[in-house]
């Protein structure tokens, strides 16, 4: 649809840290200009390393990275002028005030004079730090500090903004506030945002496109809906009033399987489950068919697949498990027996 070149394009990135820790293993990512793109994965999957390479902090062993039209490996200086970075760790000077932090940041990009002051005040107001801007950053709450970090990243009006785990460590209230703020940023004209997160919910809510990262490469990519759609539909669970006998059971399964878009019909005692392309649309048909068979229904639930299901499918393990064992996420191929879990 868009004809403008991508804001970020990385290909075949490889990076091994001392001690043979393979952080990236063929990582590639393309972000269209003006969109919000999410890199989703557990700790140790390679998201932060990717961001460090794209923001010119680190160099890959091999591969290419073009950011805002500039080669990040050959012309890191040009990339630096075009990007804003909000790293995982704050990086604000705790002894300086919020405003002083912003002013210094602007000066490093060559913003001067009246424009410098105007921009700092504008960002302080926008991030609800107008009063706090006069205080030293060490007095800030976690949420305030994070908002200042984002303001620092925006000080020179970048084309591409990198947000590395923007809400990690924030309490739920501050997290919601930050989500709203990022949502508003996404509306800014022309700003491209690359966001990393290990919160499924966050990627689902903020990003237009998501790449699922596991063991240093992208294992799946698409819009949140596409990714969930690839699981082939919603799960429809029906609880029957009483367990049908074997003959009725066969009849029920046959009757349901006739509907287009309904499959994997399974009956286990009183619990009937199926997959449907469009769960809510399938429910009336399912209920009618059951009524015609004379089967009474106790309850019906439709579950949309979550990104957790998507992650399980592509990475071969539950997201929470992968996150709990970041060390295990780096080396070693997938043990053969876990692949059976990804149906």
């Amino acid at each position: 649809m868009t004809t403008s070149p991508p804001a970020v394009q990385a290909r075949d990135l490889m990076k091994t840290y001392p001690g043979d820790v393979r952080a990236l293993d063929g990582m590639g990512v393309t972000v269209a200009a003006g969109t919000v793109f999410g890199l989703l994965g557990p700790n140790g999957a390679g998201k932060s390393t990717t961001v460090k390479i794209l923001t010119t902090l680190a160099r890959p062993d091999s591969g290419t990275a073009v950011v805002a039209g500039h080669d990040a490996l050959r012309h890191p200086d040009r990339v630096r002028r075009a990007i804003g970075v909000v790293a995982q760790r704050s990086g604000a000077d705790p002894v300086a005030t919020g405003r002083e932090n912003l002013l210094l940041q602007g000066r490093l990009y060559g913003v001067r004079g009246a424009d410098l002051n105007r921009r700092a005040d504008e960002l302080l107001a926008r991030f609800d730090l107008a009063e706090a801007g006069k205080r030293q950053v060490r007095t800030y709450s976690g949420g305030m500090q994070r908002r200042l970090d984002v303001a620092l990243g925006l000080m020179h009006r970048p084309e591409v903004l990198f947000l590395d785990e923007p809400t990690t460590g924030l309490d739920p209230e501050a997290r919601t506030a930050m989500w709203e703020e990022i949502g508003r940023l996404a509306g800014d004209e022309g700003l491209t945002i690359l966001l990393t997160t290990h919160y499924l919910e966050e990627a689902d809510r903020l990003a237009e496109r998501i790449a699922i990262v596991d063991r240093g490469r992208v294992v799946a990519e698409g819009t949140p809906d596409e990714l969930k759609g690839e699981l082939h539909g919603d799960a429809v669970h029906v609880e029957l009033r009483e367990a049908p006998d074997a003959v009725d059971g066969t009849l029920i399964r046959t009757a349901l399987a006739e509907f287009a878009g309904v499959r994997e019909v399974a009956l286990d005692g009183r619990r009937l489950s199926a997959r449907a392309d469009d769960g809510p649309a399938a429910v009336p048909h399912v209920l009618t068919a059951l009524e015609q068979q004379g089967v009474a229904v106790a309850s019906v639930t439709v579950a949309r697949p979550s990104l957790d299901d998507v992650y399980l499918r592509y990475a071969g393990r539950r997201f929470a498990d992968a996150d709990a064992a970041p060390e295990a996420a780096v080396p070693a191929p997938v043990p053969a027996n876990t692949s059976g879990a990804a149906r």
């Binding site: 200086d77 970075v85 704050s90 990086g91 990009y109």
Partner: peptide
């Protein structure tokens, strides 16, 4: 380094 300040400066054109 630990606070991330050095990395913040390294991603600017300073």
């Amino acid at each position: 380094i630990e606070r991330g300040t050095l990395n913040r400066f390294l991603t600017t054109p300073v």
